[in-house]
Every structure is written in structure tokens, then in C-alpha cells.
Design a protein around this nucleic acid. Structure first.
Length: 415
DNA sequence: TCTGGGGTCCTAGGACCC
DNA sequence: TCTGGGGTCCTAGGACCC
């Protein structure tokens, strides 16, 4: 029952799977358009604008990491560890040497760079799974043997650098989970090939937390059981871990052993769309919270509409002090694209939290189905896959909710 | 360390149905 | 009047990832 292989699909014992992971992608993009940042500590995040006091680090360059700046860190903490260059220059107590450059996230630009990278990947293989803006898997079994895996990886990195001017790390292994770990093993600018016979040995010494899917909570629970390394996990009894962690426990044991037969498949359409926003400080002003929810609902409705997404479930997320995450959702009779209804339902779900101290709110739509017609937008087609590729990518799920509202033209939508 | 934003998947319990 | 067994859908929360 493991993996997503279709029943009856042939067993491919020795696939060649390549994982490409861009190094500090946002920071690398900033350096590309501002070459003076080369070799300097660069921190990219939200809330770095003058006067802003809350926000977090999205990406820190390796130079910035040396100072203890990490992704997801609050801005205040990052600035303590690594002051801004500009401020250090004006403050006698601070050293300009030990200061860094802060830049605000510019997703549109990173997306454009990402598309240049992805174009190279799609040239290299017909089977590409784009995981995120800076990460993808390629199945290169047809065309790359273990003897030329290194050469292939090196060439791929060179082509990415030439086309998009940003560095990548590449891992090549017989399956996805091992390839993912391999691309991480020699960052930045890494290239690691793990051959079929070397998988267990390669994984064994790693800390469990380096495995994809093991976060701080699971790592802690594993440690309590005396399981610290991937080798320990590989030696554990899959049944025992299934008792303790459910299906995931069994899954993790297999991953640690380097067993993973999931096929590299293109990612389908989104399952949900959401927008959220934090208040500068927790507020009990319910009117202000409602106003924020209205804005978010409008945003989500616009995005859904632009993607041709209909939603059958509307939800809100309300984070109350100290940091309690509450979610509420309501399903509709059927999928709709109705901004007014979205706002109305979101506000209705929010009402329960009137009087509470709210730090953050979010609006989400899910149970999506897609009109096969995308609303035209000037930039949405440029640099996108051809219609043939779109059709292919969209044909993944066989999901029951691909209904088409009446009266709409059929052009297969993607993304 | 007191916490940004956008996602995915899994689980548990309840409602409801046959 | 007390109550089997199986299935689906929905909601809420949690862990994890980038």
C-alpha cells in the first residue's frame, strides 16, 4: 500500500531520480539583480521595510547564517544577531563588517527566475515534479545511467547557472526520498550521487531530523525511544513504529532504509487557497478583525477566480493569544465562485471569536474544482508550458470534482 | 525564540446512512 | 428496547514543508 504507484505498474528497481534544490533561492535572486551582494550576508523576508517591526526571515544566505540568522526567525531577533549595514555605518558601536543586507520578499521576481530554472529542468527530462518555487524532482531513468550520473548532474547545474544565474544543489539516487536527502548533503552548490548499493550506508549516519517528514516533534518522540539516527530508525521494527505513529511511522522506517517506490509524478492542481495576515499586536477590536477578514476574503476570491477555481468549503483561521490556532469551516451545497458569499460566510465563522484577543486571521477556500477556462490575464501565459503539456499535467487525479459549470468553454487550465 | 505566509497530508470524532 | 457492523462525509487540529 505504500507510495502512489498505480496497481499493476511495473516494478522499476533501479530508477534514476534527480532532486534539484536551489541554494538560498530568494537571496540568490536578490544577488542576481544586485551583484554587489555577492559574498555578503543577505537576509530576505517580510516586515523589513522601515518602520515595520514584525515579520520573519524567509531566506538567509550562508554568510548570514554564520551569524545565527535562520529562516522563520522573527525579524527582531535577526536584527539583533546581524544589524543592517546602513545602521551599522551610522552607529559607532556597531561594526560594518558584522552587518548585513536586508531585502523584502519580491515573489513576482523570484517566480520569473524560477520559470527560467524550470524550463531547463523540463528540457532535461519529460518527467518533472515541481515541488515548490525552488525545488523539483526529475525521473531520468531513460537516458541517464549510474556511470554518467555525475556528469549529468554537473551539466544540469551548469545549465541552470547559465540560464537563470542562480546556484543549485543536485542529488541523484534510486528514489525520491533518498535523492532529496542527497541534494541536501553537500549544500551549497552540491552534487551527490547515491548508487543503488550505497543507499543504506549513505543514510545511516544522518540525524533522523534530516529525513524529509521528520520535524522537531517527531524527532523528539523518536529520541525518547532511543532512535537518533536514520540507521537507528532503519533498524527499528516497522510494526512498532506504526503502533506509535500510525501509518506515518511505517513510512518513516522505510524512508530511513532508503525504500521508496513513489513514482515521480507532476503535481496536480491546488487543493486549497488561503490568505492570512497578522496584527502588529493582538487586538480585541472586533471591527478591525472583521475588516481584515473582508480584505483577505476579497483577495482569496480574486485569486480563486484568476485560477478558475470554484470552492465548496469556506474557512477561517483565528490565532488568539497566547498562540492558539483555531479553524472553522463550512461546506456549501456545491462549488461556487461568489465573492460576496465568501465574505459573508467568513465573517459568520469569525463571529464566534468576538471579544477574544486576536493575533492573526486567515481566510481559506477548499474542496476546489476547476472551471476549464482560465480568466485571461496578461502575464499568465508567458513562459508557461504548452497546451499539450498543460493537458498532461492536469490529467493527474481522476478526482471526482472536476465538474464543469454549464456554459463555459473548455480550455484545460493548469496551475 | 514568543512566532510571517502559503501550502499538504493525516487523524480522530461525530453525524448520518444502510 | 437496546444496539451490530460497515461506510462516507464533515470538521477541527496537528505536524510538516518551503
Amino acid at each position: 500500500v505504500s507510495g502512489t504507484r498505480l496497481p499493476g505498474a511495473p516494478e522499476r528497481e533501479e530508477r534514476v531520480v534527480c532532486h534539484v534544490d536551489m541554494d538560498c533561492f530568494y537571496a540568490a535572486c536578490e544577488r542576481r539583480r544586485e551583484p554587489a551582494l555577492a559574498g555578503e550576508p543577505v537576509v530576505v523576508g517580510m516586515g523589513f521595510e522601515p518602520g515595520e517591526t514584525h515579520g520573519a526571515v524567509a531566506t538567509a544566505s550562508y554568510e548570514a547564517r554564520e551569524y545565527g540568522v535562520e529562516s522563520a526567525q522573527p525579524i527582531s531577533q535577526a536584527l539583533e544577531k546581524l544589524p543592517r549595514k546602513i545602521e551599522a555605518a551610522q552607529d559607532d558601536d556597531l561594526s560594518v563588517e558584522d552587518a548585513g543586507f536586508y531585502r523584502t520578499v519580491d515573489m513576482a521576481f523570484y517566480q520569473s527566475v524560477s520559470e527560467e530554472v524550470k524550463a531547463v529542468l523540463h528540457e532535461a527530462s519529460e518527467t518533472v515534479r515541481e515541488v515548490s518555487i525552488d525545488e523539483a524532482y526529475l525521473d531520468v531513468t531513460d537516458g541517464v545511467g549510474w556511470d554518467d550520473a555525475e556528469a549529468f548532474g554537473a551539466d544540469l547545474k551548469t545549465r541552470i547557472e547559465a540560464a537563470a544565474e542562480v546556484p543549485a544543489s543536485v542529488g541523484i539516487a534510486p528514489n525520491m526520498s533518498t535523492a532529496k536527502v542527497a541534494s541536501d548533503a553537500d549544500k551549497p552548490d552540491g552534487l551527490v550521487v547515491v548508487r543503488p548499493g550505497e543507499v543504506r550506508e549513505f543514510l545511516a549516519p544522518l540525524d533522523v531530523e534530516e529525513l524529509h517528514g521528520v520535524g522537531p516533534v517527531t524527532a523528539g518522540e523518536l529520541r525518547e525511544r532511543g532512535i537518533e539516527t536514520a540507521g537507528d530508525l532503519a533498524a527499528a521494527d516497522a510494526y512498532d513504529l506504526e503502533q506509535a505513529f500510525g501509518e506515518r511511522g511505517r513510512e518513516l522506517v522505510h524512508r530511513a532504509r532508503g525504500e521508496d517506490d513513489r513514482a515521480v509524478e507532476p503535481v496536480g492542481r491546488p487543493k486549497s487557497l488561503s490568505r492570512e495576515s497578522a496584527f502588529t499586536e493582538a487586538t480585541t477590536d472586533h471591527g478591525a478583525v472583521r475588516e481584515r477578514v473582508r480584505t483577505l476574503a476579497t483577495d482569496v476570491a480574486e485569486r480563486a477566480s484568476a485560477k478558475g477555481a470554484l470552492y465548496a468549503t469556506i474557512g477561517v483561521k483565528v490565532v488568539t493569544t497566547p498562540y492558539d490556532v483555531n479553524t472553522r469551516a463550512r461546506s456549501l451545497a456545491g462549488p461556487v465562485d461568489e465573492p460576496d458569499l465568501l465574505e459573508e460566510v467568513a465573517l459568520d465563522l469569525l463571529a464566534e471569536f468576538d471579544g477574544e484577543q486576536v493575533r492573526k486571521v486567515g481566510v481559506r477556500v477548499s474542496s476546489l474544482s476547476f472551471t476549464t477556462r482560465q480568466q485571461a490575464s496578461l502575464d499568465s501565459w508567458e513562459g508557461r508550458p504548452t497546451p499539450e503539456e498543460r493537458t498532461q499535467s492536469g490529467a493527474d487525479s481522476g478526482a471526482p470534482d472536476e465538474r464543469e459549470p454549464p456554459g463555459q468553454t473548455s480550455i484545460t487550465d493548469f496551475d
